[in-house]
Amino acid sequence: MKYVDTNQVQKNMNSRLLKNNVLKSVFFLATIFGLIVLAVLIIRVIMQGASWINMDFLTNKLSTSPDRAGIMGAILGTFWLMVVVIPVTLILGVGTAIYLELYARKGRFQSFVQTNIANLAGVPSIVYGILGMTIFVRALDFGNVVLAGGLTMSLLVLPIIIVAAQESIRAVPQHLSEASYGMGATKWQTVKNIILPAALPGILTGSILSLSRAIGETAPLVVIGIPALLIPFPGGIMDRFTVLPMQIYYWTIDSSLVEEYANLAAATIIVLLVLLFLLNATAIVIRNKFQKRY
């Protein structure tokens, strides 16, 4: 008596292998699907907006007439927003990371802060907008200026940079700081002279990523109340402002009134995506070039 019926096995195996191969292609198609949508999105935006990008568009003021409208104000607004966001997030983010990794005693408080940061990362951006509107715009009475928007954005991206800084501080090998202590350096000297420089590439990468999040984010600024009006170019952090995503937003919702606004929105999207691409490329270069392996 045969224990294994080879014919039966053969028959079953074929269908099982067929199923395997068919589903493999299905899985592959699913993977490609996202990329196809991405390609369609980018091609569509470029086709619609590329011909609108020229020097006038980049340097002109806002205007209700599509032919004369430019995004200089939004570019400057984005710039001033970064002037607030970069120092605030760097100080708060890196400081928190140093405290949690190097100073805090492992215990309740540390794990409480850690859980808190994880929860903050999951709070929808629009809720930060409400916080910013209530505290910075109204209670502290800054008004809807760059400073209020920048502080709101800083709080929003803080969890990203904290986690990135923590990881890169953790990756600095123990023997470096032990050598520093062995030479008689104090704790802060070790942190400042040994650990931070070694962790810097990781921190920079993380801060660039959080910066690109802040540049592309719209919802909190809508809540804070960025005017759709034609306002003068911002010249400092206490001026009213608009940013690239806000401009895209207003032009998109108004495109049902004036059709060309959709093209202006597309052109602004190209500028925004190029900016984000450059930032991310910088982050990758920094990571590859300066990341030391110990």
């Binding site: 999105l41 935006v45 592309g216 919802a219 895209i248 937003y249 925004l272 995506l273």
Partner: peptide, 24 residues
Amino acid sequence: TLKPMLEILAGIPTIVYGFFAFTF
């Protein structure tokens, strides 16, 4: 090759997706 390309998808600002949904 595929994973970083997918991550681009995650890095696109939501306002751009909004524009895409509305106009395309």
